[in-house]
Design a binder for these strands. Structure first.
Lengths: 146, 146
DNA sequence: TATAATTAAATAGTATTCAATTATTTTGTC
DNA sequence: GACAAAATAATTGAATACTATTTAATTATA
């Protein structure tokens, strides 16, 4: 086996994770100007998405929804609290749990965010079938990896 | 239109970027134990991939290959230099350019890394066709987004 | 009931990202 | 050809994110 062949598997062009990593970051970069308008980072945005749907959730459950642990979420939630979009308080039943609840202001933000998904859709420029295929493959990997 | 419909596009389950983001991070998390063995972060690893192939490259070009800007690369490269895997020096022709060159130690690291792609392949558990499909979609998005 | 094990979140340290700055080279104009 | 303006490349600093460790609360077991 020559040298070229031996190291083939370590070439950047033969990686699948790399375009995943790159693609994820490029898209989040595309989100930035839209998210700047409502003063949220991408992580804050997906956190708000969960809260817009559920209204109230503890950090553990939130982390399971977002695949993020408390080490990442704690500062994100403190930031969202300081912006007035959420409240954080310990559960009475189990003091270990911190319950996060959306505020009126947090609810209001939803209407400002509502145009973002459509704007992003025009950046990605995939057909509906392609998006569906990608979506399924990604969740399949997530299921396999965990 | 009822409330449910109105906000449909903001639901986490209707996002394509989110599973991309989550998947990317989950896979990188899977890399971690393997990369720990050779004391590299994922970013350092893909940087070394380029250098294993090209031996020498300037920061600009490296950034284009990795979709990373110099603000991200500068600390990564300083770290790799401190580990003895690369040398950094300004180009003579154009002092603005910093040329990064792999060292003997950097070359040696390649043999320690060689088993990683196969180990990762078993985590992802996709068929060859699925991997190919994913790969093409991801690069298509990257092409569209930039 | 006391102790060990488990669970949940916070903290601390490191890595990564983005915006602004510095240094160098190139371009355009007189 | 000399000079200012524009463009280019990398660094710095501040903010954000990630991982491992710690702290606090609860549950299970001896």
């Amino acid at each position: 086996m020559n040298n070229e062949e031996k190291y083939e598997s370590l070439k950047l062009c033969n990686q699948v994770c790399f375009p995943l990593y790159a693609c994820s970051k490029e898209i989040i970069r595309k989100y930035k100007p839209f998210l700047d308008e409502i003063d949220l980072t991408y992580t804050q945005y997906i956190t708000m998405m969960v809260l817009w749907e559920k209204k109230s959730v503890n950090v553990k459950t939130l982390g399971e929804s977002l695949y993020l642990d408390s080490g990442t979420l704690t500062p994100v939630l403190k930031k969202l609290e300081s912006k007035g979009y959420i409240n954080r308080e310990r559960s009475n039943e189990d003091e270990r749990n911190l319950v996060v609840t959306i505020t009126k202001e947090g609810e209001n933000l939803r209407d400002k965010a509502i145009s973002i998904p459509a704007k992003m859709g025009t950046c990605v420029k995939l057909s509906l079938e392609e998006v569906q295929c990608l979506y399924n493959l990604l969740y399949k990997i997530i299921g396999n990896v965990r």
